[in-house]
Simulated assay, not measured.
Amino acid sequence: MNDSFNHITHPKEDDKTFITSYWTERAEDFRRLREKELQSPKLILWRNELLQHIGQNESLRILDIGCGAGFFSIILSQLGHTVTGIDITPNMIEKSKLLAYSVNSNVEFIVMDAEKLDFDTNYFDVVVARNVTWNLPHPDEAYKEWLRVLKPGGILLNYDAEHAKNHHHLPQSVHHAHEHIKPDLLDKCHTIYHMLSISSTDRPTWDKVLLENMGATVTIDSTVGPRIYAEEDEFYIPVPMFLVKAVK
């Protein structure tokens, strides 16, 4: 692990209670931000992004991992797919249900650990995730599970960024997704960065090698961030986002 992570006093890496407590505190603000995002130009950008990979010709069974307040779940449901959204944080699942109901979107939301899925093998056509892998204690186990529940030929679309490596060196943006978070919550987020070994990996190369060793065909798209977050608005993520796409 990098020296910048070694001197930090932090919870044990498998302390999911600490991680969940952070997202519990963020749940309501997160819901409000996702509600605004569903009414913003980001909706069209993300819908078009997802359509590039899954198309619109048939109804697919899709799993949204770490769904948060349900942004991806709602978009995919409105495109006519059968969507299940899971999150380890009960408060997030409550907020996702409220948000989906408010926009008349039919999604099944379940409290579930992304590293231990309670679904049959070869069950889903597509698995999606956004900004999830960075805060998993055992991302290798998660990837194994995500591939397991995919049907042969199914696709994984994992959008993420090296949030931990970049958080000390972020540009001074006028607007960004964390601008309204309280300082104590930001400290908690930074503690999560420091407690997890994935924070010191070289991503998305690490993801690609791991998934290929599991037998998947993997492509990386590093243009996602510049394309979707070109504007410094309240949804802006200054850390470059990438896509890890794996075909089982």
Score class of each variant (00 low, 15 high):
39 Q>R: 15
41 P>D: 10
42 K>M: 14
42 K>Y: 15
44 I>P: 01
47 R>Y: 11
48 N>C: 12
48 N>A: 11
53 H>D: 14
55 G>R: 07
59 S>F: 08
60 L>A: 10
61 R>E: 14
63 L>Y: 06
63 L>E: 08
63 L>N: 07
65 I>A: 09
71 F>D: 02
72 F>E: 05
73 S>Y: 08
73 S>P: 03
74 I>D: 10
74 I>C: 08
75 I>A: 05
75 I>R: 01
77 S>V: 08
83 V>D: 07
85 G>Q: 05
85 G>Y: 13
85 G>P: 03
86 I>R: 03
90 P>V: 09
90 P>A: 11
91 N>I: 00
96 S>F: 05
105 S>D: 04
106 N>C: 08
106 N>L: 12
107 V>E: 09
110 I>G: 07
113 D>W: 08
116 K>N: 14
117 L>M: 07
117 L>W: 04
118 D>G: 06
120 D>K: 13
121 T>L: 05
121 T>F: 09
122 N>E: 15
125 D>H: 12
129 A>T: 07
134 W>G: 04
134 W>S: 07
137 P>M: 12
137 P>T: 12
141 E>D: 15
141 E>K: 13
143 Y>A: 09
145 E>I: 07
147 L>F: 09
147 L>N: 02
150 L>E: 05
153 G>T: 09
154 G>V: 13
